[in-house]
Measured scan of single mutants.
Amino acid sequence: RKEMTAACTPRRRIINLTSVLSLQEEINEQGHEVLREMLHNHSFVGCVNPQWALAQHQTKLYLLNTTKLSEELFYQILIYDFANFGVLRLSEPAPLFDLAMLALDSPESGWTEEDGPKEGLAEYIVEFLKKKAEMLADYFSLEIDEEGNLIGLPLLIDNYVPPLEGLPIFILRLATEVNWDEEKECFESLSKECAMFYSIRKQYISEESTLSGQQSEVPGSIPNSWKWTVEHIVYKALRSHILPPKHFTEDGNILQLANLPDLYKVFERC
């Protein structure tokens, strides 16, 4: 597991931080080997919608929660590849102030007048994250320049770009939802926020969305749709870069829909 690298990086740093090793061990302890084997050997059937997909393993048909699986995938990559990410360069710098204002204007932020003026909160978020810029760049390849612009994001899987519609809320939550006081809790909560931002979430995906850094293989055609990215990038990574937690067998994120021999018997009677 320590050699797990989802995106190509030129050289690998050895990380011996106790906090990170502890988080890696927790993933191992909570892992479910049968689910790992199923995901490793599954045959992708198709997307139901951005949140759900169908896959077959041996004779069984499964309904998989793409949102939760991708979130767990990105969390584990962030923990196992800690401080070893490439950088996704933004085509132009994104001012943190503008991103924070967009987030505060969104109902998702939960902002009320009692929280104070949005401009003041946005300025605080910019200054707060600028103070964390060195650590964010060093460990997470999340790059913020001296003017308070976001200029780079971590490359977690080759050819995958997170849904940038979720970027404003991500920046807001970096400042408000991460435990910045304790090292282990900081790395864990920061990785979880980043994983949620990178995950496939239906509120940020339309039929026209593209999450891939590449064009489709047909010359002159439109960019790959999110469905292509889910199948050929995300579920491909799920084959080798995730140890599913045991609770996925109990919380409805992986559901067995049918045993195909039983279905064949039904059709034979028709």
Rank of each mutant, 00 (worst) to 15 (best):
Q214Y: 08
V161K: 06
S199Q: 00
K265F: 06
P95C: 13
G152M: 03
D262R: 12
G31H: 13
T18W: 12
I205F: 11
R89E: 15
A83D: 04
S212P: 09
V230S: 03
I157N: 02
Q215A: 14
N49P: 00
L35D: 04
E143D: 09
F170N: 00
P244C: 03
G86M: 12
K236Q: 10
Y80M: 14
A83Y: 03
H247D: 13
S206K: 14
L164T: 06
Q58W: 04
K2A: 10
L174W: 01
L102P: 00
V20T: 04
V20M: 06
I171D: 01
R239G: 04
K60I: 12
D138V: 05
A94H: 13
E177I: 05
E268T: 08
I27A: 05
Y124H: 09
P10S: 06
F267A: 15
S43I: 10
H32K: 05
A53M: 00
L88V: 13
K2F: 14
N65H: 07
L150M: 07
I79M: 09
S19R: 03
A122P: 01
N28G: 14
I254H: 02
M38N: 01
H32R: 06
Q203K: 14
D105P: 03
E37N: 09
S141W: 00
L39I: 08
Y62H: 03
Q58C: 15
P162G: 02
E147F: 13
T112L: 08
T249W: 08
V20R: 03
N159M: 08
L96I: 13
I200P: 04
V126S: 09
L99H: 06
Y235D: 01
V48Y: 05
F197E: 01
N224E: 15
Q256T: 15
S19C: 05
W226Y: 05
E119F: 07
G116S: 07
R269P: 08
L190N: 02
Q76M: 02
Y62M: 08
I222V: 13
Q24M: 10
N149I: 12
Y198D: 00
F82S: 03
V230P: 00
K227R: 06
I205Y: 08
A175G: 07
I144E: 00
H57I: 09
A6W: 07
Y204W: 10
F267T: 15
L90T: 04
Q215G: 15
E231H: 04
K130Q: 14
H247Y: 10
L54R: 01
I242H: 01
V230W: 00
D105M: 09
F187H: 03
E3C: 09
D262E: 11
Y75V: 02
R36H: 07
L190G: 02
L172V: 10
H232I: 01
K236D: 09
E123K: 10
W228L: 06
A175E: 02
K68S: 09
P93Y: 05
E182N: 10
E165I: 09
G31K: 06
R89N: 09
Y139H: 04
R13Y: 07
P223T: 15
D262S: 07
L211I: 11
A100N: 03
L102Q: 14
L90M: 09
M135I: 05
I144K: 01
N28D: 08
P245Y: 01
V126N: 13
T249K: 15
S240V: 11
Y75G: 02
A100E: 01
T67P: 02
K131I: 15
Q30E: 08
D181L: 12
E26Y: 06
E147A: 08
L255H: 13
V234E: 00
F248L: 13
C270V: 14
E147N: 13
S91C: 15
P117E: 15
E25D: 14
L164S: 07
L142G: 01
A122D: 01
V34S: 07
I151D: 06
H32G: 13
E165R: 10
P163R: 12
C8E: 13
L104A: 05
E3L: 11
T18I: 10
A122T: 05
I169V: 15
S106L: 11
E231T: 03
D158F: 06
N65P: 01
R173D: 03
T112H: 12
Y264N: 15
G46W: 14
G166I: 01
E143G: 06
V20L: 07
F170M: 04
Y139A: 03
D158T: 13
L64W: 04
T112S: 13
L54D: 00
K68Y: 05
D98L: 06
E127S: 09
F197C: 02
H57K: 03
I27N: 03
E147V: 14
N149V: 11
N16W: 07
G31F: 05
Q214I: 09
P95A: 15
Y264K: 15
L150C: 05
E29A: 11
E26V: 06
F267L: 15
L54W: 03
I27C: 14
Y198K: 01
N259G: 07
R173I: 01
E119A: 15
L156E: 01
T9E: 10
V178G: 01
G120S: 10
M135W: 05
E183T: 04
I242M: 12
D181G: 11
A175P: 04
F44W: 07
C270I: 13
H42T: 06
R173C: 03
S106Y: 10
G152C: 11
S109E: 07
E183D: 04
E134G: 11
A175L: 11
E177L: 05
E182R: 10
T9L: 14
V126F: 05
E147R: 09
I151L: 10
